[in-house]
Structure formats: structure tokens, C-alpha cells
């Protein structure tokens, strides 16, 4: 157990030192938040009540889809995975430690947004903080599980970057976090429903925590866990 905990803490430090996760979890989302927060509210003042949720969806999506997969590729697409086998520890340990570490980074980034938004932009805090945090935790888990599939599945850095962008950009543009989804044409609305960002955003809104918004996220998370288990199993017998 102490080896596991040491591994998680070490991974957390490595993520900060490696800069790529640090940039995608903190620097870019926070700069985006500071710039776009002001612009959004000047264009659409009614976004004051959803600014925190919007910026959090953007921050989590960026960290999970763009920041985490390269770290996983670095481990599972290289000789680093042999370290686990050579020391008789399960191959999934790398994924688990990276997942937990990234979860803490993303949660920290979201907390910074939550603390700054009311001060800087007079944003409205969620009415029910327990439900909001529960929804946030669920969305982070789902996003990280998708990021994990990308990192385990794609063995080429260029392809990984492209695929991650193909998931990240529609997640942000079609989920209602940048502008109300009602403004989109019907076919784009339907595409938006495929991405978990839409459901995560709905779940975090006031009075949004309900089964209608939750079932799809649970389905995606369950499927992602199974996919990750299969991908790790394949790695084990390579």
C-alpha cells in the first residue's frame, strides 16, 4: 500500500515537472478563463449564472483529453511499462496512479476557477454545492476514462494529438458551454449529445443533477473502464 501511495504522490510531482499536464490542467484553462470570462459576460451577461460550470467543463475536457493521453503514451508506448513487469507490480498501476494524479490536478484547477469566478466576474456560485461537486467528480472521472482510452489505444504521438483535438473541440463547441445549445442547428445539437461534455455540463447546472443527465455518463464510464481493462490485458501479453 505504501508503494501505491508513494507512486501516486510521485506521479503528481512528475506531472508538474513534465509541464505538459501542468500546462493543460492549469495554465491554458486558467488563461482561457481569465480572458473568455470577461468577454462572455460582456456579450451575454446572463452567463453569470453558468460561467463556473462552462469554464470547469472546458478545463476538465482540456486536461483529460489533451493532457493525460500523452503521459499514458509515454509509459505504455515505451519501455517504461517494463519497469512494472520487472518489479512484479500490476501493469495497470501506471494507469491508476496517473488517473488519480490527474484527478487531483483537475479538481484543483476547478477549485481555483470556483474561487476566482465570483471575485473577478461576479459569477454566481451553484445553489447546491454538494450536488455540484458530485457532478464535477463524475464528469472528471468520465473525461479521464476517455483520455485513458486514447492514451492506451493510440501508439503514435501525432495521431494522438489529432484524435484528442477531434474529441476536445466538439466537446467545447457543441456542448453549450461556449454559447447556448439552442442556437445550434439540429444536426449539430445531435452531435453535441454524443459528447459527455454536454451531459456533464447539464449535470453541474442548478437542479441538473438527475438520472436523465446521469445515465449516459455512467454508460460511457462503464464502457471506458471495460475498454481500458481490455487494452491493458493486450499490453500484458504483447
Amino acid at each position: 500500500m505504501s508503494g501505491f501511495l508513494y507512486g501516486v504522490v510521485l506521479q503528481w510531482k512528475l506531472d508538474i515537472r513534465s509541464k505538459s499536464l501542468f500546462v493543460t490542467c492549469y495554465i491554458v484553462p486558467l488563461i482561457f478563463f481569465l480572458l473568455m470570462g470577461g468577454i462572455f459576460l460582456s456579450v451575454m451577461p446572463e452567463m453569470r449564472s453558468t460561467l463556473i460550470q462552462s469554464m470547469i467543463v472546458m478545463s476538465v475536457s482540456m486536461g483529460a483529453f489533451i493532457g493525460v493521453p500523452p503521459s499514458l503514451l509515454e509509459t505504455y508506448g515505451s519501455d517504461i511499462k517494463k519497469v512494472y513487469k520487472a518489479n512484479g507490480v500490476p501493469l495497470c498501476l501506471g494507469l491508476v496512479t496517473m488517473f488519480i494524479s490527474a484527478f487531483v490536478h483537475l479538481l484543483s484547477s476547478c477549485l481555483i476557477i470556483m474561487l476566482l469566478a465570483p471575485i473577478l466576474f461576479d459569477a454566481v456560485l451553484p445553489v447546491s454545492l454538494p450536488f455540484f461537486f458530485l457532478a464535477l467528480v463524475i464528469y472528471i472521472l468520465v473525461s479521464l476514462s476517455i483520455g485513458s482510452i486514447l492514451g492506451l489505444l493510440i501508439k503514435n504521438q501525432a495521431k494522438l494529438t489529432m484524435t484528442a483535438q477531434l474529441i476536445f473541440l466538439p466537446s467545447i463547441m457543441l456542448s453549450g458551454v461556449m454559447f447556448p445549445i439552442d442556437l445550434l442547428p439540429d444536426f449539430l445539437k445531435i452531435i453535441g449529445y454524443i459528447f459527455p461534455a454536454f451531459w456533464g455540463y447539464c449535470l453541474m447546472l442548478d437542479r441538473g443533477f438527475c438520472l436523465e443527465n446521469l445515465w449516459y455518463l455512467i454508460l460511457i464510464f462503464s464502457a471506458a473502464v471495460i475498454a481500458c481493462a481490455i487494452l491493458l490485458h493486450k499490453q500484458k501479453f504483447k
Binding site: Y6, G7, S78, K82, N87, V89
Partner: peptide, 19 residues
């Protein structure tokens, strides 16, 4: 090529010892 580039030797040693 089998260690993360940002790990310190002392950290790798402690991690391996714990494992």
C-alpha cells in the same frame, strides 16, 4: 529509455524499494 525523464534517481530508488 525505461524511466520517466523527470524522475530523480532517489525517487526511483525509493519507489523500486517500496515495490
Amino acid at each position: 529509455s525505461s524511466l520517466p525523464i523527470h524522475i530523480k534517481p532517489i525517487e526511483a530508488i525509493k519507489l523500486f524499494a517500496k515495490w
